[in-house]
Design a binder for these strands. Structure first.
Length: 151
DNA sequence: GCCAACGTTGGC
DNA sequence: GCCAACGTTGGC
């Protein structure tokens, strides 16, 4: 069982949107490293820290689960989609995405600011590496953040 | 294969 | 809205 953090802009897709839908395809990721995590390493049942980026404040707002394994991201074939990739074909898809299911909301958001101030979380990829929207999280980091979120 | 130019992410 | 970080593209 592994732990992950996935970023999303709440204006585009928030944890409340996920709670309403139950589960959602995590489409639109166009970064190879993030894709590889979803394609190769994420397993059904893995737990996901749900992170709101470009938000006030930005931070972890709850938990989700990997509900279905990675499959080709349909938006790459859709000419009308902002995620359309002319170099991808159904025979040779370039982008893959998992399906994520809602688990629970934190009692209180764990903001990036607080994460940065917390010694045991200072090695998180989130803190020292920008622009990676899907990333692994250590079990110890995961537990600390859940506790801080009131779970 | 190098690297400059360019585009995007995401905090502030 | 600004801009730093950094991934991607394309000329050579």
């Amino acid at each position: 069982m592994k732990y992950w953090l996935m970023k999303t802009e709440p204006d585009v897709f928030s944890i409340d949107d996920l709670a309403k839908k139950g589960e959602s395809l995590w489409d639109g990721v166009r970064n190879y490293q993030a894709r590889n995590f979803m394609m190769n390493d994420m397993k059904v049942g893995d737990t996901v820290l749900f992170y709101h980026s470009n938000a006030t404040p930005s931070g972890v707002v709850g938990l989700a689960k990997v509900a279905k394994p990675a499959k080709p991201d349909p938006s790459q074939f859709d000419k009308k989609s902002e995620y359309y990739d002319p170099k991808a074909t159904p025979e040779k898809p370039r982008w893959f995405c998992v399906t994520v299911g809602f688990d629970k909301k934190f009692k209180k958001e764990v903001s990036l600011e607080v994460i940065k101030e917390t010694k045991s979380l200072k090695d998180m990829i989130l803190v020292h590496r920008s622009r990676l929207s899907v990333q692994p999280v250590l079990e110890s980091e995961f537990k600390t953040i859940c506790k801080m979120g009131g779970l």
